[in-house]
Simulated assay, not measured.
Amino acid sequence: MVVQYKVEISATATSAIGSQFWIVNNGSDPVNLDDLTLRYYMTNEVAATLIKAINWANVGAVAGPSTGFPTGNIGVNVMPMAMPAPSADTYVEFSFSGGNNMLAPGYRVQFSWTVQNFMSQSFDQPGDYSFNAAASAQTEWKNVVLMYQGQSVVWGIEP
Score class of each variant (00 low, 15 high):
31 V>S: 01
41 Y>N: 04
50 L>Q: 13
17 I>M: 09
44 N>H: 15
40 Y>F: 15
11 A>M: 10
12 T>F: 08
10 S>Q: 10
13 A>S: 06
28 S>A: 04
44 N>S: 15
23 I>A: 03
23 I>K: 01
51 I>V: 15
34 D>C: 04
12 T>Q: 09
37 T>G: 00
44 N>T: 07
16 A>W: 15
21 F>Q: 15
45 E>M: 07
17 I>G: 15
59 V>Y: 10
46 V>W: 13
19 S>W: 11
20 Q>S: 07
41 Y>T: 07
55 N>V: 11
47 A>I: 13
52 K>F: 09
22 W>L: 00
25 N>H: 12
49 T>H: 06
13 A>R: 04
55 N>F: 11
26 N>Y: 06
33 L>Q: 05
34 D>Y: 00
58 N>R: 08
19 S>E: 10
54 I>D: 04
10 S>W: 12
34 D>K: 02
41 Y>M: 09
50 L>P: 02
12 T>L: 02
55 N>M: 13
21 F>P: 01
59 V>I: 14
47 A>Q: 05
43 T>M: 11
32 N>C: 00
11 A>F: 02
8 E>Q: 11
50 L>E: 10
23 I>Y: 03
28 S>F: 06
28 S>E: 05
8 E>L: 15
36 L>H: 11
10 S>P: 14
18 G>V: 15
18 G>A: 13
38 L>N: 14
20 Q>P: 00
